[in-house]
């Protein structure tokens, strides 16, 4: 069940260009699974900001935030010791059972969309699935979580659009060039990347989408998207949708 809780920012450090890792301590019991998100209260801003959960263990939450505008800039300027109110455990999260035991999962992230893959990777590995992680970035300076995902037991492939690290191209190019096979895919990233994956990959899969949100709790209907089974709130019935549900 989703909760409102006060967390303490215990550490904040840069992990890539304009990208920060925030470590927070507090009551994480509201979180159920990878792919869920939190709504973070930002000082001096009215609306909370949705941030996907990168990693979580009891009492400790890791978020990765990329500076995109004034709100995320203010969030990344906070100093350790600061109290932050979070709505915890929002959204549906990834469906681990969709990838059968002993099967191969491919987890694919683009840009800051790589963030939720760490907890997903850990949970898939715990559940005895083989994991290949494909990470797409614009350039070398944007890369993050590569080592953490390797440490969590994934085979990691990196692609950069400018070719400054790993395969040159998009994640779809890397999947094709490396002839990566899997039984099921999980993805999070920009909409064009998700569209390319959903239309090009033959295997079943699910993707985490991003929309500008009001409340993040299913109350305001500010983030409703059209799906093959009718209108759905990104924050409530999503943010993770099955490949066949999305309308491009």
């Amino acid at each position: 069940m989703a909760t409102e809780r006060t967390f303490i920012l215990t550490a904040i450090e840069p992990v890539a260009a304009a990208t920060w890792r925030l470590q927070l301590s507090g009551d994480t019991s509201g979180l159920r699974c990878a792919g869920q998100f939190v709504m973070v209260s930002v000082p001096e801003f009215y609306l909370r900001r949705p941030v996907s959960v990168c990693d979580c263990e009891p009492g400790l939450l890791t978020l990765i935030v990329k500076v995109m505008g004034e709100g995320t800039a203010a969030l990344c300027a906070l100093r350790p010791g600061r109290e932050i109110s979070l709505l915890c455990g929002l959204g549906n999260g990834f469906d681990l059972s969709a990838c059968p035991k002993g099967k191969e999962a491919m987890i694919i992230g683009g840009g800051v969309g790589v963030a939720p893959l760490l907890l997903l990777c850990k949970q898939l590995r715990e559940a005895d699935r083989h994991v290949t992680a494909v990470l797409g970035f614009n350039t070398k300076e944007d890369i993050f979580l590569e080592k953490e995902l390797e440490a969590a037991g994934a085979d990691v492939i990196v692609a950069t659009a400018d070719g400054s690290a790993g395969c040159q191209g998009f994640v779809t190019d890397a999947i094709r060039m490396c002839v990566l096979k899997s039984d099921y895919f999980y993805a999070c990233g920009p909409r064009p990347m998700l569209k390319a994956l959903c239309t090009q990959l033959r295997q079943d899969g699910e993707v985490s989408t991003e929309e500008r949100m009001g409340c993040g709790a299913g109350i305001c209907y500010g983030c409703t998207c059209q799906t093959t089974s009718g209108p759905k709130r990104t924050c409530k019935e999503g943010p993770v949708f099955k490949k066949e549900e999305l309308v491009w």
Binding site: G214, C220, C223, T224, C225
Partner: peptide, 11 residues
């Protein structure tokens, strides 16, 4: 269905 997204703006 309502209006196209985005539907929310911070002020």
């Amino acid at each position: 269905f309502g209006n196209a997204l985005p539907r929310i703006a911070e002020c």
